[in-house]
Design a protein around this nucleic acid. Structure first.
Lengths: 140, 140
DNA sequence: ATGGATGCAAATGATTTGCATGAAG
DNA sequence: CTTCATGCAAATCATTTGCATCCAT
């Protein structure tokens, strides 16, 4: 964020993100509405995948309906704007796709909290193999 | 199955399975009831994991209630008699644990049919590594 | 005889849908 | 101005639960 002396407002990070979102929606021939931008913003701000009700409760100052969250997220999932993740015994969770790289998730057995894991066993294995190291795996 | 001449009934495969089931239940201090034996039998006969409603429809000649199927399967899952499998976008499916080895499942994208797969990528990989073969993986 | 399992019906909880209204293009 | 998204309420669908009865132990 740049601070300018001449009273001309600079484009903040938030505004920039907003423009990004509008571009995504219009490029997909989808109308730009407040609930849609809000939901994209919430998904962008959160590095962890969120459930429908988590998204809805983060919107509770706005009067956005739960049904709208469902409809919007389902739309985004069809359009491949969000990724739908399904953990055993848990609700479905959603995360933005467009700027994410391949990663996995780790789930707490107690509190069900979900964190991203930026390492991948198979990638690690691949790297080892590239180095032609002989490995003994202990699986299960 | 042995055929005997002297009118003493031999124990058929089915009877043998029945005794097995009764042993499982009593060893877990659970009452031996018809619905429970029926459900165990259905799971035993089917090599593929079944959904609740699949199990229930296979029982439709009996008058067993859907709620009983839910209660019985949930009990079995807690007692680790059945394994609960959760496929994306699908219903939960259940399979007997006690005589099963490690395996995976393959799901048809169209008809959602589920088959067991008796091979495991990681096992295969492990075998390769045991042989000290150098492999180049292409993942994703 | 007594606690637990079942059937039936009703409750629950997440998700979806119908419809009238309002906003986006 | 016309199409489509939204809010609200009601419907849906899988699963769970309360309760009276029945059965296994």
């Amino acid at each position: 964020m740049t601070i300018q002396k001449n009273n001309v407002k600079s484009i903040s990070d938030k505004d920039f993100t907003l423009e990004e979102f509008k571009l995504i929606l219009s490029s997909l021939s989808q109308r730009i509405t407040e609930p849609r931008l809000d939901i994209l913003g919430i998904l962008k701000e959160n590095h962890n995948p969120l459930t429908i009700s988590e998204i809805h409760s983060k919107l509770k100052n706005k009067k956005t309906d739960l049904a709208t969250v469902y409809r919007t997220i389902n739309l985004f999932a069809e359009l491949r704007v969000v990724n739908e993740i399904d953990f055993k015994d848990e609700f479905k969770r959603y995360e933005l796709i467009y700027d994410r790289h391949h990663h996995h998730h780790i789930v707490c057995r107690k509190c069900k909290n979900v964190e991203n894991v930026e390492t991948c066993v198979l990638d690690d294995l691949e790297n080892l193999l590239k180095k032609r190291v002989t490995v003994k795996l202990h699986i299960r």
